[in-house]
Design a binder for these strands. Structure first.
Length: 306
DNA sequence: CGGAAGACCTGAAAGC
DNA sequence: TGCTTTCAGGTCTTCC
């Protein structure tokens, strides 16, 4: 489930259960997720108090009063279920509830908190992982050292986009997915941002920069559309795919606002466009776009954009 | 060095 | 009704 808006939604949902609370009991139901858990993982958490819960790109970071920071990544299918002490269950940012917490299939980590909340990590595909690093080394740790700019921060500007993409022949789609350049976008929001900007996903990334490195109009447009689509998605609580019957406020709704993602064959929603959404494969992943309002040849779109 | 392809997993849906 | 194939929101490793 998780690109930046979904991870941010999870962060907000997890905060009341975790920030200020102490880990009373941490149970690992298997030795690894994508990677082995760190040495003595449960013991290092138990007794530690969470001082803050933040997000960097698609990662969650829980600062602890022990001088370590817990790093959480949801992979493709990771989610958290929270059982609150008042008996309510929520699944921040995702999915539906499926029975007793800690017993459902693929519940891999169960964290009992001092405030009575139980936070359970569930991940069918186990592409997610958890790590524990010294807080002082956080920015330089292996997960973050080479990470690109935050797309919702001041660092994300037409100027920085142009400099990052300058002289690149690689397609815009691939460049936007490269977490070393911009960190937090995934397949959905890259497709959506390119559509909003009227840019064909196979255009070379270098078209965002002029010869002198200054941003082109396309760079200005794309920077705004990236910010817009992410901001709207965060406000909608992210996107929830392949789910039904959610209860408590667990799910986001931005999937209803997709204009191209997973809409192959449907009419383009751009005003007066008349095109049809197509699907191609780029570096092994689906790309959805409208060939009419995202023309392949650099030039003006076939349709004026509001 | 950059970039593409493969690998890691499970499950849902589509195809036959 | 099965059985097989394809595809999925990510990213780390391997191989040019």
């Amino acid at each position: 489930m998780p690109e930046l808006p979904e991870v941010e939604t999870v962060r907000r949902g997890l905060s009341p259960a975790m920030v200020g609370a102490t880990f009373s009991r941490v149970t690992l139901r298997r030795p690894n997720l994508r990677f082995p858990f760190p040495e003595r993982f449960a013991q290092r958490l138990e007794g530690a108090t969470v001082t803050d819960l933040a997000r960097r790109a698609k990662y969650l970071t829980a600062g602890l009063d022990t001088g370590e920071t817990l790093i959480l990544h949801l992979g493709m299918s990771g989610r958290f279920d929270v059982a609150l002490p008042d008996g309510r269950n929520v699944s921040p940012g995702d999915f539906y509830l499926e029975g007793a917490l800690g017993n459902a299939k693929h519940d891999h980590v169960v964290m009992a908190m001092s405030n009575g909340a139980t936070v359970t990590y569930n991940d069918a595909r186990r592409f997610g992982f958890m790590d524990l690093v010294p807080t002082l080394d956080l920015a330089g740790c292996k997960h973050f050292a080479a990470m690109g700019i935050e797309p919702l921060s001041e660092a994300m500007s037409p100027e920085s986009l142009a400099l990052l993409f300058r002289n690149k022949i690689t397609p815009l789609k691939a460049a936007l997915l490269d977490q070393r350049l911009i960190a937090g976008l995934g397949n959905i929001y890259v497709c959506e941002a390119l559509h909003r900007a009227g840019l064909h996903p196979e255009l070379p990334a270098g078209i965002l920069a002029k010869d002198d490195g200054r941003p082109t109009m396309k760079a200005r447009l794309l920077a705004r559309m990236i910010r817009d689509v992410l901001t709207e998605a965060v406000a909608a609580g992210g996107s929830t795919l392949r789910d039904y019957a959610h209860t408590d406020g667990g799910s986001g709704s931005f999937q209803h606002a997709f204009r191209v993602y997973d809409r192959t064959g449907e009419p383009c929603s751009t005003k007066d466009c008349g095109g049809t959404i197509a699907r191609i494969v780029q570096s092994g992943r689906s790309t959805f776009y409208c060939a009419t309002c995202q023309p392949a040849k650099p030039g003006k779109p076939a349709v004026s954009r509001a």
